[in-house]
Write a protein that binds this DNA or RNA. Structure first.
Length: 416
DNA sequence: TCTGGGGTCCTAGGACCC
DNA sequence: TCTGGGGTCCTAGGACCC
C-alpha cells in the first residue's frame, strides 16, 4: 500500500507576494479579498499581531501603526505560482490530486518518510521561494492531521510523518488537538461535539464507531475511521467534471439601477460560459441570485430565480437572454444591491448529449470563441457587457494589486 | 464608509405513488 | 367517526472546504 502525502503552501497568497518582494517578509503583510473587503491571508509578522480573516477596515489602523502592508488579491499571479507548485510536486509522486490552489495530495511508495518530505520541502523553497508544510499518513485524513501538526509545532520543522511518530508523542498530540482541527469538522459540528464532551481528537477516538455515527453523521464517522487507517477517501487523480459553475462578484458600491445590474450580469455570464466551454460541458439549468448588503438599510432581500432548460445549451446569447429574464423577475426596484451571481447547473459533457438535442453554437459564437482563443478572453465581448463602460464604477476595486510578475510582459520584475 | 468567491456533499422534508 | 405505511424522487438549505 502506498502512502498519502499532503503538501500545502503556508500563507499562500502572502508568500507569493513575498517571493517577488522579499523585503515584505520583515513587515506585517495581509492580502485582501476582492474589493479589498476582508483579509484572506497574512504572513507570520501579521499573524503575530493577531491579524486573520476579518474586515479590512477594522484592522487598518493597527496595520498602519506597525508599518504593515496590505495588498489586493492578485489571482493572476497566484494561479501561475500555483501551476508551478503543483507541477513540481507531480515530479515526485506516482499520483497527484490537486486539491486546492495551494494543496496537493500525493501518492508515494511505502518506505518514504520524513526525510524524503524534508527534501521535497527544501526543493519547493529553493525553486519557487514558497514555504510549505508536509504531512504524511495512511489516509488523506491522517495526512491532513499530520500537516496540521507540521505547521503548528516548530520542532517538526514543517514535516510530520504520522506513521513514524513515537506512540507517546502521538498520544500527546491527539490529546492536544481540538476536534475542530479535523477535516470536515466545522464550527457547528464542533459545538455539538463539545456539548457531548468530545473536545479533542483523542476524545473522539475513544468512542466506538456507532457512537461516533450518532454524534455526527456519516462524514464524521469516515474521518474517525480514516484516523485508524481505513481508507474512505481516494486520491482523485482525474479532475472531476464540475456539477455547477458559478460566477459572482460584489460591487464596489451599492447598485440600484437595473441597467447596471444587467451589465454586470452580462460580464459574469461571459465568464461562466468560458468556464463551460473550457470543460466542454453543456448546461441544463440557469440560476440568478442577487442580494443587497446584510449591513445596509434599504438593501434588496436575497433572492434566487432559476429555470430548467428543455434542452441543454452552450449558447452564450441564449443563456444571457434567460439570465436577464430571471434578473427582471427577482429585481426589487429602489433597493440597493451588493452582488449578482449566475450559476449554471445540470451540467453534462457535451459529447454525451445526442446531436440535435441541444443547439450547436451559432456561427457568431464560433467566431467569438475563435477570437478569444487566439487573442485572450477579453478580446471580444457582448454589447451587453459592462466591462468596458467608462462609467462602470461599480466594478470590483483592487487598488493595491502587485504586478503580474510572471504572466504579463509589461509587469516583469526588474533587476537593477 | 468599508464585511470574498467558488465549490461539494449531506440531510430533512415535501410531493407523489401504490 | 374512523384517516396507513413505505417507498422514491426532488429541492432547498445548511455545513463545510479552501
Amino acid at each position: 500500500m502506498s502512502r498519502i502525502v499532503l503538501v500545502d503552501a503556508n500563507n499562500f497568497y502572502a508568500s507569493c507576494e513575498m517571493v517577488f518582494e522579499p523585503a515584505l517578509a520583515q513587515r506585517p503583510l495581509v492580502v485582501l479579498s476582492n474589493n479589498d473587503g476582508i483579509v484572506v491571508a497574512a504572513n507570520e509578522p501579521a499573524k503575530r499581531l493577531g491579524l486573520k480573516a476579518q474586515p479590512f477596515f477594522r484592522i487598518r489602523q493597527l496595520l498602519r501603526r506597525h508599518g504593515g502592508v496590505a495588498r489586493s488579491s492578485n489571482y493572476t499571479l497566484y494561479a501561475d505560482m500555483s501551476r508551478r507548485f503543483h507541477r513540481l510536486l507531480a515530479r515526485h509522486a506516482s499520483a497527484q490530486e490537486i486539491y486546492s490552489i495551494d494543496e496537493s495530495f500525493l501518492l508515494v511508495p511505502e518506505g518514504l518518510g520524513a526525510e524524503w518530505g524534508r527534501c521535497l520541502s527544501d526543493q519547493v523553497r529553493q525553486w519557487l521561494g514558497l514555504p510549505v508544510a508536509v504531512g504524511m499518513g495512511r489516509t488523506k485524513t491522517e495526512a491532513k492531521l499530520a500537516n496540521y501538526w507540521a505547521k503548528r509545532y516548530r520542532l517538526f520543522d514543517g514535516v510530520v510523518d504520522a506513521a513514524a511518530l513515537a506512540e507517546a508523542v502521538r498520544t500527546v498530540l491527539l490529546a492536544q488537538t481540538p476536534v475542530s482541527a479535523l477535516w470536515g469538522v466545522g464550527r457547528r459540528l464542533s459545538r455539538r461535539l463539545q456539548a457531548a464532551g468530545v473536545h479533542t481528537v483523542a476524545d473522539l477516538l475513544s468512542h466506538p464507531g456507532d457512537v461516533v455515527r450518532q454524534l455526527g453523521h456519516l462524514p464524521l464517522w469516515r474521518v474517525w475511521a480514516e484516523l485508524q487507517g481505513q481508507r474512505h477517501y481516494a486520491v482523485q487523480t482525474q479532475p472531476q467534471a464540475s456539477q455547477t459553475l458559478v460566477c459572482s462578484r460584489s460591487f464596489a458600491r451599492p447598485v440600484t439601477a437595473l441597467a447596471e445590474l444587467e451589465a454586470a450580469l452580462a460580464d459574469y455570464v461571459m465568464t461562466v460560459m468560458q468556464k463551460l466551454w473550457r470543460q466542454q460541458l453543456v448546461a441544463g439549468e440557469v440560476a440568478v441570485f442577487a442580494a443587497g448588503s446584510r449591513f445596509a438599510q434599504g438593501a434588496a432581500v436575497p433572492a434566487w430565480a432559476q429555470h430548467k432548460l428543455m434542452t441543454p445549451t452552450e449558447d452564450v446569447v441564449a443563456v444571457l437572454k434567460l439570465a436577464r429574464r430571471l434578473l427582471h423577475q427577482l429585481y426589487q426596484p429602489g433597493r440597493s444591491y451588493r452582488k449578482v451571481l449566475i450559476r449554471l447547473g445540470a451540467l453534462q459533457p457535451r459529447h454525451q448529449v445526442p446531436a440535435g438535442l441541444f443547439s450547436r453554437p451559432s456561427r457568431a459564437q464560433q467566431a467569438l470563441q475563435a477570437v478569444q482563443a487566439r487573442f485572450g478572453p477579453q478580446a471580444l465581448f457582448l454589447g451587453r457587457q459592462g466591462a468596458l463602460q467608462p462609467q462602470a464604477d461599480w466594478q470590483m476595486a483592487r487598488n493595491r494589486r502587485s504586478p503580474r510578475y510572471t504572466t504579463c510582459w509589461a509587469e516583469l520584475p526588474q533587476v537593477s
